[in-house]
């Protein structure tokens, strides 16, 4: 079981790169859903078939892999957009930044004072890299949908950390984060619809007009 973890984490990182470099929203949502589903396997692979691990896995699969992507796809169909046309930072620069932060995460993780059993694996660097990719997505994209994807990716990164510490970390925190996110998705969904109705676009830049 353990030797499957590294390829899995590698796939997670590759999905990060794909999302950063792709313009097609539907494909992005799908791969992030796949990322969520893959991550759902992680607690099972690392902790075995305990009750706690299965709970985490089921919860992650439902929300990350199915519910939220489905909501997003539905929102997309509603507002009829297919592509992120004009990101604030271009796709190639974002991708370069993403790889640089990932490499940085790998180098940084070596310096962290971790428990010896966590030192060699890819857990910590992958978690950091996924979180940073989420941040990058949030910072560089205009469309509200991509921003939600960014949040989702951020949460995926946190989830990897959570798996690492799941013996010590209460389910409550994880559930709380998910709840936050779910609320966020609903709010964003409503906002997306409202913006698109008001301005006939879903660029978040228009939100700056709401100040004062």
């Amino acid at each position: 079981m353990m030797e499957l973890i590294n390829p899995l984490l590698l796939a997670v990182i590759l999905i990060n790169f794909y999302t950063l470099g792709s313009a097609r929203l539907v494909a992005c949502i799908r791969v992030v859903a796949i990322q969520g589903a893959l991550l759902a396997l992680l607690p099972l692979l690392s902790h075995g078939m305990t009750f706690h691990a299965m709970l985490l896995a089921a919860e992650a699969f439902c929300f990350k892999g199915v519910v939220i992507p489905w909501l997003l796809l539905r929102a997309i169909r509603r507002v009829r957009i297919r592509r992120e046309m004009e990101p604030i930072v271009g796709f190639v620069p974002t991708l370069i930044l993403g790889v640089l932060t990932t490499v940085g995460a790998f180098l940084f993780a070596d310096l962290l004072p971790l428990a010896p059993e966590h030192h060699d694996g890819m857990f910590v660097p992958t978690a950091l890299a996924t979180m940073f990719s989420g941040f990058l997505l949030l910072i560089t994209r205009r469309k509200a949908i991509t921003q939600i994807l960014g949040y989702l990716m951020l949460e995926n990164g946190i989830f990897i950390f959570a798996v690492l510490l799941s013996a010590a970390m209460p389910v409550m925190v994880e559930a709380g984060i998910l709840l936050d996110l779910l609320v966020g998705v609903f709010v964003m969904g409503i906002v997306v619809n409202q913006i698109s109705r008001e301005f006939s676009t879903i660029n978040t830049e228009r939100l700056t007009a709401l100040k004062e």
Binding site: I13, V92, V99
Partner: peptide, 14 residues
């Protein structure tokens, strides 16, 4: 094409 190639290069760096 250049985008894909840059992506490939980044993968190899990784």
């Amino acid at each position: 094409v250049p985008q894909v190639l840059v992506g490939t290069m980044l993968l190899s760096i990784f």
